[in-house]
Design a protein around this nucleic acid. Structure first.
Length: 270
DNA sequence: CCCGGAACCTGAAGGC
DNA sequence: TGCCTTCAGGTTCCGG
C-alpha cells in the first residue's frame, strides 16, 4: 500500500526514465481511472506533451508537462506504476502511457481505487494537504500546534492528510510504537516530551522506509517490478500474533476508524 | 469545525 | 471441493 516512502521510491526510480520523454499515446482499458477532465480531453491534451519533471506531494505523484499542465496520479491502495518495453497481457492494467523512446508506463491497479488528473494548477488536487513531514518546516512546535486541543485518537490524526501529508496506516502504527504512544490516546493529551518523541519517530520511520525502497505488504511494486524491503523491519504493523521485539508481549490488533491498528500493549500503554 | 462510520473496490487467505 | 467471512486501507461523503 503506497504511502509516502513508497511514492517517494516510485518517484526516484521513475524520474531518470520519464523526464525529457514525450507522450506518444494513451490507452485506457478502464476509463474510470481518469478523474479529471473527460476521458477524451485527457487523452487529447496529454498526447504530444513532454514530461519536464516529477514531484511527490504527500501520497500524490505529479508529472509536470511542457504546456504548464500537470498529470497527477494517486495509487490509493493497490496501484503500481510499471515501466515496460514490451506490452504485457495483464487484466489489472487500467492505463498505459506510451513514451517516445518505446517505453510504456503501466498503471496497474487490481482494486480500481487509483485515479489520475490532468490539471492546470496542482493546487486544485493537492491544495488542502498538510505539511511534508520530512521537510525542515515540520518542527516539533508545528506538530504540537497541529495536535493541540484535538480529541480524536492520535492514530487517526496521523493518518489525516489535511493535518500531515503522506503518513498512512502502516507508518502511523510504526511511528507510534517507536514513540511509545498508545494509538487511542487523544491527540491533544500528549505531553511535550511525547510530541517530541513522536516527531522524531515519524521522521526516523519514514526515512528508514525510503532507504529500504518502501514496504511490499500487498500489491506494491517498484517501477522495475522489484519489491521493497521496509516491511521486514516493521516492529508492529501486520505482526498480529507475533511478539514484541522489545518485551516479548504479543502484538495486538484493534480497529481505529475502521483501520487495522497494531501495537504493543506493554510498550504503548494507554 | 470536529469526530466517527460507511462506501468504494477486489483478491487472498482462512474456517468449516 | 467450495462457499462464506475476514482482512487489506486511501479518500470522500454523510450524519450528528
Amino acid at each position: 500500500m503506497p504511502e509516502l516512502p513508497e511514492v517517494e521510491t516510485i518517484k526516484n526510480e521513475l524520474e531518470p526514465h520519464v523526464v525529457g520523454r514525450r507522450v506518444t499515446g494513451v490507452s485506457l482499458p478502464w476509463k474510470g481511472i481518469v478523474r479529471e477532465p473527460s476521458v477524451n480531453q485527457f487523452r487529447a491534451r496529454l498526447i504530444g506533451q513532454r514530461i519536464t519533471g516529477l514531484a511527490r506531494r504527500g501520497k500524490y505523484l505529479s508529472f509536470s508537462l511542457d504546456s504548464g499542465e500537470s498529470l497527477i496520479i494517486h495509487l490509493k491502495m493497490s496501484g503500481s506504476l510499471l515501466l515496460k518495453r514490451n506490452s504485457t497481457d495483464d487484466r489489472f492494467v487500467r492505463a498505459v502511457i506510451s513514451l517516445d523512446d518505446g517505453l510504456e508506463l503501466y498503471f496497474r491497479d487490481p482494486r480500481k481505487f487509483g485515479r489520475m488528473w490532468l490539471v492546470d494548477d496542482t493546487r486544485t488536487v493537492v491544495g488542502k494537504l498538510g505539511p511534508e513531514p520530512l521537510e525542515t518546516g515540520f518542527t516539533v512546535k508545528l506538530l504540537a500546534g497541529l495536535l493541540r486541543g484535538r480529541a480524536a485518537p492520535i492514530k487517526a490524526l496521523l493518518c489525516d492528510q489535511d493535518l500531515i501529508a503522506g503518513i498512512g496506516n502502516m507508518y502511523a502504527d510504526e511511528a507510534l510504537f517507536a514513540a511509545g504512544i498508545h494509538p487511542l490516546r487523544p491527540g491533544g493529551s500528549l505531553s511535550a516530551d511525547e510530541v517530541k518523541r513522536l516527531h522524531n519517530a515519524i521522521r526516523q520511520v519514514l526515512r528508514q522506509a525510503i532507504g529500504k525502497k518502501g514496504a511490499s505488504i500487498i500489491n506494491y511494486y517498484r517501477p522495475d517490478s522489484e519489491l521493497g524491503t521496509a516491511h521486514f523491519h516493521f516492529r508492529v504493523a501486520h505482526r498480529r500474533g507475533e511478539v514484541c521485539y522489545n518485551c516479548g508481549t504479543p502484538i495486538q490488533r484493534i480497529t481505529v476508524r475502521n483501520r487495522g491498528t497494531y501495537f504493543c500493549p506493554r510498550c504503548q500503554r494507554q
